Deep mutational scan, measured.
Amino acid sequence: MDVFMKGLSKAKEGVVAAAEKTKQGVAEAAGKTKEGVLYVGSKTKEGVVHGVATVAEKTKEQVTNVGGAVVTGVTAVAQKTVEGAGSIAAATGFVKKDQLGKNEEGAPQEGILEDMPVDPDNEAYEMPSEEGYQDYEPEA
């Protein structure tokens, strides 16, 4: 019985440690998101679009440190934060509304985080759909 109880105690310690790591990862992701939003706020009209992409990228980098179902929630929060940063930029006159959601080359930025393969159960990952990809044929 002692062996059984000791095993359960060790398992509990492992769960607590994993929860603490997840909590730490979420806190880091939130900190990076805040950094990115402050970065966007300090940019001029020309830099705002690039700044919004930076927020998304920093958040995406930190999301990889967070495991399990938390990833889905962090990704949703990050996307809403990026959308909010863009709205703030438009409201303050840093950028025109028609410039939001495009990178410096004018290509749409939507789907940055949505296409990231995420499995809350950590069982399997699927690649994003290939609808947006084109076949590449090298020139002879």
Rank of each mutant, 00 (worst) to 15 (best):
G14W: 05
S42N: 08
N65Y: 05
G31A: 15
G101A: 13
E83L: 11
V3M: 07
G101K: 13
K21G: 00
P117A: 07
D135H: 15
T33A: 06
G47Y: 09
A107V: 04
K80G: 07
V66P: 02
A91R: 02
P138F: 09
K80A: 05
A78E: 02
V48A: 05
M116S: 11
V49C: 07
T72C: 02
A19S: 01
Y136C: 09
K34N: 03
G36H: 14
K12R: 02
E114I: 15
K23N: 04
F94I: 07
K43M: 04
E28N: 08
V71W: 09
E46D: 12
V66Y: 15
A29L: 07
K60N: 05
V71M: 03
K23T: 04
A11Q: 00
E28D: 11
G84M: 14
A76T: 13
E123H: 03
E83C: 01
F4M: 14
G47I: 07
N122G: 10
G7V: 14
T81V: 11
G106V: 08
M127T: 06
S42P: 01
T54I: 15
S42Q: 04
K12S: 07
M1N: 00
Q99V: 13
D121M: 07
N65T: 08
E105F: 09
V40A: 08
E139R: 07
E110K: 03
K12A: 06
K60W: 06
G73W: 11
A56K: 09
K23W: 15
A30W: 15
L38Q: 03
E131T: 08
D121W: 04
G47C: 15
S9V: 02
K45G: 06
V77I: 04
L38A: 13
K58C: 02
F94L: 13
A27G: 06
A29M: 04
N122W: 03
Y133V: 11
A69E: 15
Q134W: 14
G67F: 13
K58F: 02
G73Q: 14
A17L: 07
L8E: 00
M127P: 04
P120V: 03
T92C: 03
V74F: 15
V37C: 08
Q99W: 12
T75A: 12
E57S: 02
L113W: 03
N65E: 07
V82W: 01
T64R: 13
T22Q: 01
G25A: 15
Y133G: 15
V63F: 11
S9T: 03
T33F: 03
A11P: 00
E137T: 05
S87T: 00
K32I: 09
E137N: 07
A78S: 05
G14R: 13
E123Y: 04
L113S: 12
Y133K: 04
Q62I: 08
Q134V: 10
N65I: 06
N122K: 08
K58I: 15
A107F: 14
T44Q: 01
F94M: 10
I88S: 06
S42W: 14
G25H: 15
A29D: 01
S87L: 14
Q134P: 11
P120F: 15
E61G: 02
V3H: 13
V15C: 04
G132Y: 14
A76C: 14
T72S: 01
E104G: 10
Y125T: 11
G84I: 12
F4G: 00
K23V: 08
V3K: 03
D98T: 07
I112K: 12
T64Q: 04
V16N: 10
Q99L: 03
A78G: 06
K60V: 08
V40M: 08
S42V: 10
V95T: 12
V77D: 02
G47P: 02
A56V: 12
V71F: 15
V66I: 12
T64D: 04
Y136T: 02
Y125N: 06
V48M: 08
F4S: 00
K60E: 02
G93P: 04
A76K: 09
S42C: 15
D121N: 10
V3A: 04
G25M: 14
P108D: 06
E57Q: 10
D2R: 05
A124T: 15
K10T: 11
P117V: 14
I88V: 06
A78T: 06
T33H: 04
P138C: 03
T44V: 08
K32G: 01
K12Y: 13
E110Y: 11
E83V: 01
E104W: 10
V74Q: 02
V16E: 05
V48D: 01
V49G: 04
S129F: 12
G93K: 04
K21R: 08
S42R: 05
Q134K: 15
Y133C: 07
K10S: 02
D115S: 11
V82K: 09
